[in-house]
Simulated scan of single mutants.
Amino acid sequence: MGMKDAEPGTVRPGGRTARVRAAVLQAAGDSLAEGGFARLDLADIARRAEVGKTTVYRRWGTVTGLVADLLLDMAEQSLPRTETGSLLGDLKANARLVQRTLADSRQGALFKAVIAAATCEPKTAEALHRFYDIRVREWAPCVEQAVDRGELPADTDPHEVIRAVSAPLYYRLLTSGNALDEPAADRAAEAAAAAARAGVYVRREEAD
């Protein structure tokens, strides 16, 4: 399939095209962090990236197409899961990774901007959902291994446990001015681990 036949932002080429993509995504992330979704402009991003405006319009088409590709790249570039041999150790590693990302001045601002845009931009919402789906699936084996070790009840939903780790950190980011520090990350991991051990995330049959 040629580039012109592909959905904008879905091509995975190498060489010069990969360098162009990296420069444009870097510029898009900087712009998002600085001014939010509403101020994103493809021509401005092309200028920042020192790339021809026509290239940016032809490749990504729209701001939402560019943001979707940025989120895909961020998901792919995120660090792989850590395996410590215990559920709590693994969940703390996950929580600290999320905490470091959200506490970073650029990354935290970028996520706030994308989350805000996703509330009224369906394509951005889809891209954000894909981002979190990729990251949750990356870390779900930590929970599956804990079930296999007998640390957690059978039928524990791994995805729900991983989401439970991040949820308090995003809530803190979006609803308070409190520092998003390592103790907050550890508490989130401890709470999710305790709830998982108590069977809170065991899959249950839906009531008729």
Score class of each variant (00 low, 15 high):
77 Q>E: 11
54 T>C: 10
52 G>C: 06
165 V>D: 08
174 L>E: 14
164 A>I: 01
66 L>N: 02
99 Q>H: 05
92 K>Q: 15
21 R>N: 10
134 I>Y: 11
165 V>T: 07
96 R>I: 06
117 A>P: 07
153 P>K: 00
179 A>R: 15
144 E>V: 11
143 V>P: 04
179 A>S: 08
206 E>F: 13
72 L>W: 09
190 E>D: 11
180 L>M: 10
2 G>V: 02
148 D>V: 08
103 A>P: 00
150 G>M: 04
114 V>W: 03
160 E>M: 11
123 K>L: 15
19 R>Y: 09
90 D>S: 14
113 A>G: 05
90 D>N: 15
58 R>Q: 13
94 N>D: 12
71 L>M: 12
199 G>F: 04
138 E>Y: 06
68 A>W: 04
74 M>G: 05
136 V>M: 01
83 E>N: 08
176 S>D: 03
67 V>S: 06
152 L>S: 04
183 P>C: 07
122 P>Y: 04
202 V>N: 04
139 W>P: 01
69 D>H: 09
132 Y>H: 14
190 E>Y: 07
158 P>R: 14
62 T>M: 12
126 E>T: 07
190 E>W: 10
81 R>Q: 13
106 R>Q: 15
25 L>Y: 01
3 M>K: 13
86 S>Q: 08
124 T>C: 15
109 A>W: 02
98 V>A: 13
101 T>D: 01
194 A>D: 11
5 D>A: 14
108 G>P: 10
174 L>H: 07
60 W>N: 03
38 A>D: 13
87 L>V: 11
155 D>Q: 00
172 R>D: 00
92 K>C: 15
103 A>S: 12
22 A>W: 09
46 A>W: 03
61 G>Q: 12
3 M>R: 15
126 E>P: 00
39 R>F: 00
194 A>K: 09
88 L>Q: 12
97 L>M: 14
200 V>C: 00
93 A>V: 09
75 A>V: 01
201 Y>P: 02
135 R>V: 14
181 D>W: 06
104 D>V: 01
97 L>Y: 13
61 G>H: 10
41 D>F: 04
81 R>C: 06
163 R>C: 13
177 G>Y: 00
140 A>D: 11
